[in-house]
Amino acid sequence: DRIAVGSATVDGTLRLWVRDTGPGVPAEDRDRIFERFARGAETGSGDRPGLGLGLAIVSAIATAHGGTVGVEDATPSGARFTITLPARTEGEAWPAS
């Protein structure tokens, strides 16, 4: 698989993304995978162990900073996870600070 990362500032928000070329995330799992201990149908089989905490931690960090996290299909295959945060000026406190 290939993994790519990127960022952009758009309309007062910072967007960070991670994309891969793996199997993607089925539509029925997309909301659930950000909950603690939830795992997608493809995860945990064979050599892919996991507890279902990683994306819940990412979601909690994004929320603590006034942002959101989401997942969508990537082209031609895979998934793209995006964290959107409010842009701030130097010295300005984060929303949860």
Rank of each mutant, 00 (worst) to 15 (best):
T21G: 15
R48Y: 14
A8H: 04
G78A: 03
G22W: 09
A87K: 06
D20P: 08
R30Y: 03
I57L: 05
D73T: 10
E42K: 10
E72C: 11
A41R: 08
A74D: 06
F37R: 14
A27G: 03
A64T: 09
E28D: 12
S45W: 14
T43F: 12
R30L: 05
A27K: 06
A62I: 06
R88S: 00
S97G: 15
G54C: 11
G24I: 14
A93V: 12
D1Y: 13
A74K: 02
L14W: 10
S97A: 15
A62D: 14
S45P: 09
T68W: 00
S59H: 08
G44V: 00
A79P: 01
W94P: 03
P26Y: 05
G78L: 05
A62H: 07
A93K: 14
P76Q: 09
V69E: 05
V58P: 01
D1I: 11
T13L: 04
D1R: 12
A96T: 04
V71R: 02
A60D: 12
E42W: 15
R48Q: 08
A62M: 07
T89C: 02
S7A: 14
G46P: 09
A79C: 06
S59E: 02
D29K: 05
A56D: 01
P23V: 15
G52E: 00
S7K: 06
A64P: 04
A8Q: 09
A27M: 11
G70L: 07
G40A: 12
G12C: 01
V25G: 04
P26S: 15
V5L: 13
G78F: 04
V71S: 06
A8S: 12
F37H: 13
A4D: 14
S7Q: 15
A41P: 15
R39W: 04
G22Y: 06
T68S: 03
E35M: 08
T68L: 00
T9V: 12
V69Q: 03
V10F: 08
P26D: 15
V58A: 05
W94Y: 13
T9D: 08
I57R: 10
G44D: 00
V5R: 12
R30I: 07
R32E: 13
H65V: 01
T63G: 02
I83W: 03
L16G: 07
P95F: 04
T9N: 10
A74Q: 04
I3F: 12
E35W: 05
T82N: 01
P49G: 01
P23M: 13
R48A: 14
G66V: 00
D29S: 10
E72T: 04
V10M: 11
P23F: 09
G78P: 05
G6Y: 14
F37G: 14
A4W: 12
D31Q: 01
R2A: 15
F37P: 13
W94A: 14
T21S: 15
F34Y: 03
E28V: 11
D31H: 08
T13R: 06
I3G: 15
D11V: 09
G22Q: 07
P26M: 10
G44T: 02
S97L: 11
T13C: 06
A27Q: 09
A60P: 11
D47E: 11
V71H: 01
T63W: 02
A93H: 11
G44W: 06
A38P: 09
V5N: 09
R80A: 14
T63Q: 10
D29A: 07
E42A: 15
E72A: 12
I57A: 13
G70Y: 08
V58S: 07
R39I: 05
G54S: 12
L16P: 09
P76M: 11
R32L: 10
